[in-house]
Amino acid sequence: MAEIIEVNDLVKVFRNGVRAVDGVSFTVSKGEIFGFLGPNGAGKSTTLRMLSTLLRPTSGTAIIDGLDVVRDAREVRKRIGLVAEKMILYDYLTPYENLRLFGKLYSIEEKELDKRINELLKTVEMDKWKNERVKNFSTGMRQRINLVRGLINYPKVLFLDEPTLGLDPHSSVEIRQLIAKLNKEMNITVILTTHYMEEVDALADRIAIMNNGKIAALDTSENLKRRISEETILEAKVTDSAGALKAVRALEYVRDVSSSDGVLRITGQGRDFVDAVINSIKSTGAKIISIKEVEPSLEDVFIKLTYGGE
């Protein structure tokens, strides 16, 4: 499998001294969807900005399609598409004009450009709006145009920074489906950042969990979940959840407890974990209405890696 992106010990220290990215290394294969997951301020956008030639790394290297992002910036730019955190779209222009403007900047020849614009707008079902001003569009419509705007040069690699931020659930699902479709049909390698678990879970072949400028874990969704599978997660519906919560939390087997709607979610490990939990709930006088073991979610992994489990 060919590696289209190779990143080696990338560091970005801003002028104000903030170490936003602190020694990040990874590779991405052709055709892959690679997701960065992390809380706000983790350094995801900064990483993406360096890869898309907008920021100069403090140290380390990033190679895209065999080209260095600093030395060969201009050649790299021809091969990448960028959908940044803020939309790159002009309100007073129509979708057609927006796409044409950027097509011209990529020196795409007129006839070919017209063909691409119509094709791309059709892909996102915006072709009937192509001559209306963007100004009056909904956020979801804008994001669809913004997305294909990043594809006007038929890039090998598409960078997406929080592509569903601020969208309603319906539009988010649409955008995700679109990303999957573009990846498959146009064979575009996609690097995306998000702080929505379900987004990377649904889309990404591999996920890098980022925190404090570092990659805390990098693997497929399944493997990441398996990584904490030596732990057991129980969901128990009890009559007095507040009392039970306190008692369970005191147990040495237990790493994390939370409760909502009278259901306790207890994470822990050890041979006697389940037995100890049941006994301690009963000892408070509360009744267990139901109890079951559940699969760990990506959220559990995320929380363990970014907050709990240093």
């Binding site: 898309s52 955190e85 779209l89 705007r149």
Partner: peptide, 13 residues
């Protein structure tokens, strides 16, 4: 400020 500059900066111009 509004972020559209990124579109120019990321283009091969």
């Amino acid at each position: 400020d509004i972020g559209t500059m990124n579109g120019f900066l990321a283009a091969p111009i």
